[in-house]
Design a protein around this nucleic acid. Structure first.
Lengths: 344, 344
DNA sequence: TTGTACGCGTTATCAG
DNA sequence: CTGATAACGCGTACAA
């Protein structure tokens, strides 16, 4: 699987980084003078300043931010970001948006994957606390706040992204899942569909619950009821989504359209349709939450409910920084819902 | 674009995190006893230990890792990761692979985007140095090492991922670009194609150079020469790739196949073909580096050169940790090339 | 078993 | 203008 090729010795690497003392010794001055030069060189003779600058460059010196941060009244400039899976393009986009905003404030992000695992999420948060992050942006894995969660004692502001966490009163940025689903489902009903399948997350996941809620509401608004036998939940990947859809198509009275609550399920549904051979004319109707690349190549009439992960990340970071910088320090928690767009 | 909804006050947040002193005071013992409990509780009366444990929980105390890390002989457990763009699914996969391995060593990753900007990359690296990362995994933006780069003085091991950096002798994990291109192009030639277009990165990017090299080699191996008029470079996104391909199709003697060196160009080429209306029978032949989701939906005969970003991330992290833990501390730098697979 | 002294790298404060 | 001192949070070495 992998070829190995051996070269010469790697570029020389000093193990310990240089300190102010090293620079001071090299320049023949006191550490304090070095420190003064580093902070702009006020009240330092130009001559001294020049010597110090030379030494700094000679030793490749950089301030130790960790040492700086333990001093009274100083912070780390670190923001914790815990997502369920960075490789999911959606969360990758969220992280990009966060990084963008955070970077403008000269702070850095510590990124961790929770893998949808509540225990792992807890460890990660404890680690972030230990590293003195100034704030945390979290895509929560748990359906509700566990009293034993380190979040309860977190000594920093928190913003929930993409999913809510009942029991925890924190700033939250969500997609307007309910309206998105409502609109998408309404479209199908208005087109005349009466047997609409639903593929989505478990009700324990906030998006799963909310997107289903919109689906139900669209039916109720038109005096219809949802046929629970057309609902399948908990498919996390394309394969299981495909199986769920195949199962629905196998029923004696199959659906004529499907509402899919995320793009994994949309693609799985599409694959099941292809495999079934039931619609050689490609007349089956699909509406799916989440846009995805090449969606336009799906040879069925597909409408996607589009929303912008990067913007969600930006908004989450902006809320968090508002708390951190103090501009929103003591205000009530805020919940932002980003609107969606139907793309036919 | 965004609805705002206001709730009640956010969950109470202590500003400063608790310290050993706080815990000691709360438990009525000395800070040292707390420290002992934290390190396993050896030589502490059970009674004291119990009191301390209670206080730790009551205050939600966590060790300050930054304070710990500045002590002699101690490290931060931080790994810097600088990629060109986290939102690119390929690099998101790389980051996931890195996080996976790094996490098993109980370390965390600091993630930054360079945006293909050399200056930004330099700032990021300087910041990482200041934060005392133990090592760095970098997708370099520059075509070759700049003498003024902070990399020259970096006080930690470095692994280059996905792209090489001439002038810097460091561990490197690449895709076997040359062989991948060679195989893909050879396939086209063996099928009888003689006018094969090339869409790829600039030669200043290591993958751009290497993938072109394989393309040329395949021609040479069969006694053919590349027609430079069929080569287009530097398209970074789907739109510009589409324009480049449209331009090629507009030529008096257009290509009969295209070799695309990355998935942005593949999708752009496909869109140009669709827009041109030249191949209603979809007989045009495409071979493209990088797999992508729904590739099988492209209605042309497409072969992709597949490779695994996550594995690349894992290998890079493994190399780096080998240097850090000392198991490979003084060995010559290593270059791993991950093999590719042709997927028809 | 428990506590004190010291040092890690940095800089605010105060002395010279 | 420059340097000595102290303090931040933690834990080793040593003392009680």
């Amino acid at each position: 699987m992998a070829d190995h090729e051996v070269g010469s010795e790697p570029t020389s690497i000093r193990r310990g980084a240089a300190t102010v003392h090293d620079v001071a010794r090299h320049a023949g001055v006191s550490p304090m003078t070095v420190s003064r030069v580093l902070s702009g060189g006020k009240n330092v003779r130009d001559e001294m300043k020049a010597k110090v600058d030379v030494s700094i460059r000679a030793l490749g010196y950089r301030r130790n931010e960790n040492a700086r941060s333990i001093r009274p009244g100083h912070t780390t400039g670190l923001i914790g970001v815990a997502v369920t899976n960075i490789a999911n393009p959606y969360y990758a986009g969220v992280v990009l948006g966060i990084e963008d905003v955070v970077n403008q404030h000269n702070k850095r992000i510590l990124v961790g994957n929770t893998n949808e695992d509540v225990a792992r999420e807890g460890q990660l948060i404890e680690d972030f606390i230990g590293r003195q992050v100034e704030g945390l942006i979290l895509v929560p894995s748990s359906p509700e706040l566990d009293g034993s969660s380190p979040l309860v004692h977190a000594p920093f502001p928190l913003v929930l992204a993409s999913r809510a966490l009942p029991g925890l009163d924190a700033d939250t940025v969500l997609i307007d899942d309910i309206n998105g689903s409502l609109q998408g489902t309404s479209m199908l009903i208005d087109e005349g569909h009466r047997r609409i399948a639903f593929l989505g997350n478990l009700l324990s996941v906030s998006t799963g619950r909310r997107r289903y809620e919109g689906f139900v509401q669209a039916h109720l608004d038109r005096g219809l009821v949802v046929d629970e036998s057309l609902v399948r939940r908990g498919q996390q990947d394309i394969q299981s989504a495909q199986r769920a859809m195949a199962d629905l198509l196998d029923q004696p009275n199959p659906p004529t359209a499907v509402f899919s609550a995320n793009n994994r399920n949309t693609i799985g549904a599409f694959r099941a349709l292809e495999a079934s051979g039931l619609f050689p004319d490609h007349k089956f109707r699909i509406v799916g939450f989440d846009n995805f690349e090449l969606a336009e190549l799906i040879p069925y009439q597909l409408t996607v409910i589009d929303h912008d992960p990067r913007e969600l990340g930006r908004q989450a970071a902006t809320l968090l920084l508002g708390r951190i910088t103090g501009s929103r320090a003591n205000e009530p928690s805020e919940s932002i819902e980003l609107s969606t767009t139907l793309l036919a």
